[in-house]
Design a protein around this nucleic acid. Structure first.
Lengths: 192, 192
DNA sequence: TAGTGCTATGGCACTAGTCATATAGACGCT
DNA sequence: AGCGTCTATATGACTAGTGCCATAGCACTA
């Protein structure tokens, strides 16, 4: 039910399904993803349920769009959702891969895997840092921002911290794996 | 398809569906969760597909169990999966809640939310640290561990780093929110 | 011997989400 | 006129996963 509530939050300012998708891709990218098909279906369902209202509006650059907005009941529902954190289990596929990495006996393959991970984290971190740079232009950044900007800024802060941790871990791990490999080679040399 | 491959990894040593569930709850808890119903259906499907083999075995503490084991084809499939990291989008429900936290106008509610988050992270971190303590008993910890223990240890290392980052973020955020509230009160005092 | 709890498997209804595809208006390009 | 691209909405088939429930063996104990 998370997507439902996220839409209630976004649509406090009116937008079309298409625009909402853009919002996900740009703003929510680092903690939530959603497909258009899923968005449209959910919007329709929540409109029927009276949590969103909609009106048709002509677009200047395409066909008519359906603009949704959170209703009073929707806002009520949103506030209820915000009373307590939802802490579902995280699913980190790449970590389960790391867990079994001994199966690929080849150390080169293991290192390639870990370097790919590291590069991914580095790229994502750079993206978030670019966003942060944009924020810094505001003299009120970070703690004097108005409430509606302060909280998004908090999510950015965690994104930066987490990605830094992940990147540091990847780099350390690569170093540790390399050291292990060298030691194995040395031992092999002594054995031979 | 991640669960499929995780099962291929786990079942390199034979186990029943019930035992696999215990494995998830204990060892994989911090990066993957799975329900019994899902596990049983997946095991059955992969047995049919020839990626797992199974045999019936009597149990010393309950009814007969079906013991599964990864086949040669299954191992092949597992190795293929390990060639490149799967970096799907993370979905952090609590972060989307934080994003909209300005909606609950009440600062007390916001702080309660963040403190609940902090407590959760602290608990989870303590759990992982307890597991780490167990590992430390081994004189080979951490870098001289054999491959099959070294890689699980890497996943634990990331878990610790990430949770530390999350905990630090939660504590900083609480401090920042409190400071904002005090400033608001002061301003209100001056206004009045 | 009845109850409780753990071991063990599995079905059913449901929800969330993906991927492919269809339709169509507006605009610019060739 | 036709083509590509962006805007815009939507459906159908499919996959992954949850939550609830049914069944049942076995051990312990009150």
């Amino acid at each position: 039910m998370a997507l439902d509530h996220i839409l209630l939050g976004i649509l406090r300012t009116p937008a079309s399904g298409y625009a909402v998708k853009a919002h996900f891709d740009q703003v929510f990218r680092h903690f939530w993803a959603a497909e258009l098909s899923q968005i449209y279906r959910t919007l329709r369902r929540m409109d029927d349920a009276g949590l969103l209202s909609s009106r048709s509006e002509s677009s200047d650059k395409g066909p008519a769009k359906r603009v949704y907005q959170t209703t009073a009941r929707g806002r009520q529902r949103l506030r209820l959702w915000l009373t307590s954190p939802e802490l579902g289990d995280e699913r980190l596929t790449y970590l389960s891969q790391v867990y079994f990495l001994d199966e690929s006996r080849d150390a080169t393959a293991t290192l390639r895997f870990m370097r790919e991970l590291r590069d991914h984290f580095a790229t994502r971190l750079a993206e978030l840092e670019a966003i942060e740079q944009g924020w810094r232009a505001d003299p009120r950044y970070p703690d004097a921002l108005p409430d509606e900007d302060f909280h998004p800024q908090l999510t950015l802060a965690l994104g930066l911290k987490k990605l830094s941790a992940q990147l540091a871990w990847a780099e350390e791990s690569i170093g540790r794996i390399e050291t292990r490999e060298h030691r194995k080679e040395d031992e092999h040399g002594i054995d031979a």
